[in-house]
């Protein structure tokens, strides 16, 4: 989807995002920029506000203050489905796959969002070539090409996480918000996922929330560290590694 402003590399921008729940401030003036060709990791302790940030960027609920810009447009008031159709894809921390569907059906359902055609009720969903092709492509990309007909609920944990990403890719997003894609994965599966992220990086802007520090420091181009809803540092992996604030506030714990 070439747009005039996609020449600028920043695809998604959150500006001074604040979210309050009653008296509790979950996010306090957090700003992030996601550029095409770059993987931006957000790290922080539990309750630091990482998932809240993803939820606000993807439109699950609105910020109390601040703006979200997608491809140069202010989308703060846009619904989540509208953002998704404009190229914003997200995965969830918990598996949100459809357990009774096959791998292919899961991906096809996601891909169908591109060409929903709800009025074509006489036509079997399996006959939609656009979504079938996109679904197949996404499944192969994450390495589930040989498990297309398997029932999603019976996959291994790692495969379920892969499927979660595949469903996100099947919608053809330009921006990816990935909430702990590596959680609970074995070493081999982690490697595979990192390779996939590497492949996705050139064409996408990626936000990665992750607890696996080794993976984060290997994969990320830029790291933002959050504590108690605030950004305490943001910069290259080397910068973060050597930042005294980060050391005392976060990494020092290890």
């Amino acid at each position: 989807m070439p747009k005039p402003d996609s020449a600028s590399k920043v695809l998604l921008r959150g500006r001074d995002i604040t979210r309050r729940w009653g008296g509790l401030v979950a996010l306090n003036k957090v700003s992030v920029e996601l550029e095409r060709g770059s993987l931006h990791a957000v790290i922080g302790t539990n309750g630091a506000g990482k998932s809240t940030l993803i939820n606000i960027l993807s439109g699950e609920f609105p910020p109390s203050e601040g703006q979200v810009e997608l491809l140069g447009q202010d989308v703060t008031d846009w619904s989540q489905p509208k953002r998704a159709r404009s190229g914003l894809g997200r995965s969830y921390q918990r598996n949100t796959i459809y357990p009774s569907f096959s791998v292919m059906e899961n991906c096809r359902l996601a891909a169908q969002a591109r060409k929903p055609a709800p009025w074509a009720w006489w036509q079997s969903a399996a006959r939609c070539e656009v979504s079938t092709a996109a679904a197949h492509d996404a499944a192969v990309r994450v390495g589930l090409g040989n498990a297309l007909d398997r029932t999603a609920g019976l996959l291994s944990h790692g495969q379920k996480r892969q499927l979660e990403i595949a469903m996100c890719l099947a919608t053809g997003p330009e921006v990816l918000l990935l909430d702990e894609p590596l959680a609970g994965m074995g070493a081999e599966e982690t490697e595979r996922m990192l390779t996939l992220l590497e492949q996705l990086r050139p064409d996408h802007a990626i936000l990665l929330v992750e607890h696996d520090m080794d993976a984060v420091f290997r994969a990320a181009d830029r790291i933002t560290v959050m504590v108690n809803g605030q950004v305490i540092a943001s910069g290259s992996p080397d910068f973060i590694r050597n930042s005294p604030e980060v050391k005392t506030a976060y990494l020092g714990d290890h």
Partner: peptide
């Protein structure tokens, strides 16, 4: 079996996910 019906089934299992995927549910 149609795309409409599949979308409904998706909504049944996880509406939030459907919205995140781009379906106005």
């Amino acid at each position: 079996r149609s795309r409409f019906g599949r979308a409904l089934a998706g909504i049944r299992v996880n509406e939030q996910r459907m919205r995140a995927t781009g379906f106005s549910t």
